[in-house]
Design a protein around this nucleic acid. Sequence first.
DNA 1: CCTTGACCTTACCATCATGGGAAGCCTTAT
DNA 2: ATAAGGCTTCCCATGATGGTAAGGTCAAGG
Lengths: 157, 157
Amino acid sequence: MNIGEAAKASGVTAKMIRYYESTGLIPTAGRTGSGYRVYSDTEVQMLRFIRRSRDLGFPVEKIEELLALWRDRSRQSADVKRLALDQIDGLQRKISEMQSMMASLQELADACCGDHRPDCPILADLGRGATQRNEQARGQFNGLSSLRTASQEPNSR
Amino acid sequence: MNIGEAAKASGVTAKMIRYYESTGLIPTAGRTGSGYRVYSDTEVQMLRFIRRSRDLGFPVEKIEELLALWRDRSRQSADVKRLALDQIDGLQRKISEMQSMMASLQELADACCGDHRPDCPILADLGRGATQRNEQARGQFNGLSSLRTASQEPNSR
DNA sequence: CCTTGACCTTACCATCATGGGAAGCCTTAT
DNA sequence: ATAAGGCTTCCCATGATGGTAAGGTCAAGG
């Protein structure tokens, strides 16, 4: 199988297969005499593993650990489960942040009549700018404001 | 006010202020004789506007539109509201994707006993690799798989 | 046997918003 | 005068992905 066939069979683009190889996530593929990469079913299976892991939102760094556990026949399932639970936590954290953004936006949008007139509570809020509007939330440390979220979209695939 | 003071007053780092200037999001700041950037209260207010917009997850591209509307005294609040609702939609879309990842992960984690033994339904699932497990969901087109989500974290601030 | 088109190779650039660092100038306080 | 700390510009890195360009290869059909 050449890289294009492996890509089709695994759902990982040829581009990404080369990238994963270059970063050491997957071992260097064999080559034909003329330099084409060659893939066996085993390698395609590994690519599918990666693809599925990405679909579950695992960063490549974690996938490296998952692959190591996958290969290690004396692994402890607890180690795998911990990675999964960590991933769930991370997702939940980001979801919560986005939900709080959404709630603020919804509140503002509800207050905006959205007609031809220029008066707009949304702009008024943004213009006020500070961080401690939402006065009923005072004293409640919300921690971790990482997420910037909006425009990170690799695009289709 | 020099850039450091403007940064403290607005919650936008000096680094980002320079970046926003370089990309044209904000106008070029005035300079002292020796080349230091100078900021007025008006400009700090604009920076706070930007900061607040980022906190609501707007991408810089959209903030450009928001700023234009902010400055336009003959704007129509409907235009602002549309931006807000679009942003809500985007957030909801991403939240849904992450929730579906979470649900899959939770199901797998629940099935994993997480002890010292090597048998692990999580790895088994990843290893199976395909896309159409979850057989009760057949036929239900889920659309838009953009989100890769996991490790995009600018970090604190 | 040769052409054509579809594929492969590498190498480089872009994304998006952000941080890090270096090298050098300026300002302020001791 | 000197030291500390802030400012300037410039370059690089992030993460995962796509795009493009220049050139080699393979298979099918003339």
